[in-house]
Design a protein around this nucleic acid. Structure first.
Length: 599
RNA sequence: GGGGCCGUAGUUCAACUUGGUUAGAGCGCCGGCCUGUCACGCCGGAGGUUGCGGGUUCGAACCCCGUCGGCCCCGCCA
């Protein structure tokens, strides 16, 4: 590798950026800096595509120029960083590159400096990237040079700015809350941070700034927001990272409708300013119960039909023991109808059966309505009458395929809810041009946890019950509805919030129902309970999953595509190698000893 | 914690089903040619601990077990 000198770098201050030059700049003497995006050596003339954040400009070396310049240009490698000085010239009409904004011109180079040569690359900087994820993550700095990744991060930036402007205009104040906070019992696993000064004690990284923002309401800030990192030590998914970004919002003296209205305004603004789309207000609101029954999930994608239909009455006492048994054990028999694409092959049916089994369903009953008649493995077990009733209830006609799951109620709905989405994808039933925004409301406040053997807060333990349900809090917790709301975009939960409890007495009752004894509640949440006793206003709020929102706006399938430095599904950072072991000295200073699980 | 797919040259893949001579190809890299390309083109060349460890076998990229890593899903994620 040749040495080069960086003499008098001032001279290499750029006059333009790589996306700037057009025929208006004809004959100007200019300086550009950037990366070598491609080098095309024709033996005589040499072309370089010079790239920076703003674009690409073709620069040309002509053989008439001095030898050392040509020699340098010949040896330029991809992704080396260079500066050039030269003259802007018009390209001959038949050489114009219509794909480039700068395609009408090129720069005839008279001077070249190589700021830094690049080694041969592990992969080409191009869209789409042809490297596997593992390689992309290891060389994330190269991956982030790709136009698509830059575009995604610019989009993320723009959305963050719009969010800030919107809330600022509406008199929300952005206040930073601590990253080092108290570990709390409920919820996800905490990331812990050992304290050096107080050995044996730990901070936790926030799962969300929930308690702080409530306390800011007690302090009278009335309207708060923050674009803030949150941390949850749980297993990862395409839409879940251990650290992720939330748009956190809280308001005082509001009810559910007030919070939703402000958020609808934000969504309207984002859709208009980012995507140029108008969306209709107010968003449709679906009660939790209806969402579960019709779509088998609390985050329904309503861009397509395939709604779930209950078949309990029709198949009760049908003589088909799987149906009968399910209903006897208080389970559910439900079906969905896939219109007009049948009949399906044996292989397709097997695949869908395997699919519902991953959600705990024991099997999948398929009824195919064909020109030749009805085909179904259950035809020999149930009466023609029952079969006809099922088809009638689902409004089936020739070419349709009906899928039925019989199982414990939540398993049945969950399996069909997921099958519904899978079918829509497989059979192209989703209109990609539509954005469906729905509020899910009237959530149950509690959920019975088999694992814990107690009721758990479905949202979080500070969520207010509806006043009408207060009497059931102790007697029949499952009946209590929460003042909670989720916002769902195309089947993705992008925000969730609630009106909070603002009186200590009610908060205490809630902890009791959750099986958190008074001492524990006092120890873990005493500061919040205390605050509620000093003039806490009625308040509520919401939090958006910012990464998911950006992902959906970017049309990406994974939030890793909109996070600069993401973790893998094993929560590793392949670029910097975190998490990593630390020196004994560091542990000692913190008063920690390792007691590792045997492998 | 569980299930599925995957790991072969710098890189992306093929060869694995059915074990058998020297593990192939594209891109990149190196050398040569080329004055209008824009993923330039043409000719030639180098480049491999088949993730790692063990087993089966006369013989393993291929079969088996374990392990590490990537992706997707279930559980989990107040």
């Amino acid at each position: 590798m040749k040495e080069f000198k960086l003499e008098n770098e001032e001279r290499w201050k750029r006059t333009h950026r790589c996306g700037d030059l057009t025929k208006k700049n004809k004959d100007q003497q200019i300086t550009l800096v950037g990366w070598v995006a491609s080098q095309r050596d024709h033996g005589g003339v040499i072309f370089i595509d010079l790239r920076d954040r703003w674009g690409i400009t073709q620069v040309v070396f002509h053989p008439a120029q001095d030898e050392s310049l040509i020699d340098q240009a010949k040896n330029l490698r991809m992704e080396s960083v260079i500066g050039i000085q030269g003259k802007v010239v018009l390209r001959p009409a038949n050489m114009v590159n219509k794909l480039l904004p700068t395609g009408e011109i090129e720069v005839t180079v008279s001077r070249l400096i190589v700021f830094n040569e690049s080694k041969p690359l592990p992969f080409m900087i191009k869209d789409p990237c042809d490297a596997i994820d593992e390689t992309r993550f290891k060389y994330r700095y190269l991956d982030l040079r790709r136009p698509q990744m830059q575009k995604n991060l610019f989009l993320r930036h723009r959305m963050a700015q719009i969010v800030r402007r919107y809330f600022d205009e509406n008199e929300f104040v952005e206040i930073e809350t601590p990253f080092l906070m108290k570990s709390t019992p409920e919820g996800a696993r905490d990331y812990l941070v050992p304290s050096r000064i107080h050995q044996g004690r730990f901070y936790a990284l926030p799962q969300s700034p929930q308690t702080y923002k409530q306390i800011l309401m007690v302090s009278g800030f009335d309207r708060y927001f923050q674009i803030v990192r949150c941390f949850r030590d749980e297993d990862l998914r395409a839409d879940r990272q251990p650290e992720f970004t939330q748009i956190d919002v809280e308001m005082s003296f509001v009810d559910e409708g007030d919070v939703m209205e402000v958020m609808e305004g934000l969504m309207v603004r984002l859709f208009k300013d980012v995507l140029g789309k108008s969306i209709h207000l107010p968003f449709c609101r679906i009660p939790y119960k209806e969402a579960m029954e019709k779509y088998g999930t609390d985050r329904p994608d309503i861009r397509f039909g395939l709604e779930i239909v209950g078949l309990d009455e029709i198949v009760a006492n049908s003589g088909f023991h799987i149906f009968d048994e399910t209903i006897n054990q208080a389970g559910k028999v439900c079906g969905i109808r896939l219109p007009g694409v049948g009949p399906l092959s044996r292989k397709q049916v097997d695949e869908y059966t395997a699919f519902v089994k991953t959600f705990g369903a024991k099997g999948l009953v398929v009824i195919q309505i064909t020109e030749e008649g009805i085909r179904s493995p259950i035809a020999k077990f149930v009466s023609d009458n029952t079969l006809q009733n099922i088809i009638m209830k689902l409004k089936g006609s020739v070419g349709d395929v009906i899928f039925i799951v019989a199982a414990e109620s939540s398993v049945c709905l969950n399996a069909l809810g997921n099958l519904r989405v899978q079918l829509a994808q497989d059979w192209n039933l989703i209109n990609r041009n539509i954005f469906s925004l729905v509020w899910i409301v009237n959530f149950p406040l509690f959920e019975w946890s088999e694992v814990e053997g107690r009721f758990m807060a479905r949202h979080h333990p500070f969520t207010s019950p509806k006043e009408t349900d207060l009497d059931f809090l102790e007697s029949d917790p499952e009946k209590v509805t929460a003042k909670a709301y989720d916002l769902v975009l195309n089947g993705s939960e992008i925000a969730g919030g609630s009106i909070r409890i603002h009186r200590r007495s009610l908060q205490k009752r809630l902890f009791e129902t959750l099986g958190i004894d008074q001492a524990t509640a006092e120890r873990k949440f005493g500061f919040l309970m205390d605050a509620l006793e000093y003039g806490a206003p009625p308040h509520g709020g919401i939090a958006f999953g910012f990464d998911r929102l950006v992902m959906l706006f970017a049309g990406e399938e994974s939030i890793r595509e909109v996070i600069a430095f993401p973790k893998t599904t094993r929560a590793l950072s392949l670029m910097d190698g975190s998490p990593s072991e630390v020196d004994q000295e560091q542990l000692k200073e913190l008063g920690l000893k390792l007691d590792l699980k045997d492998k």
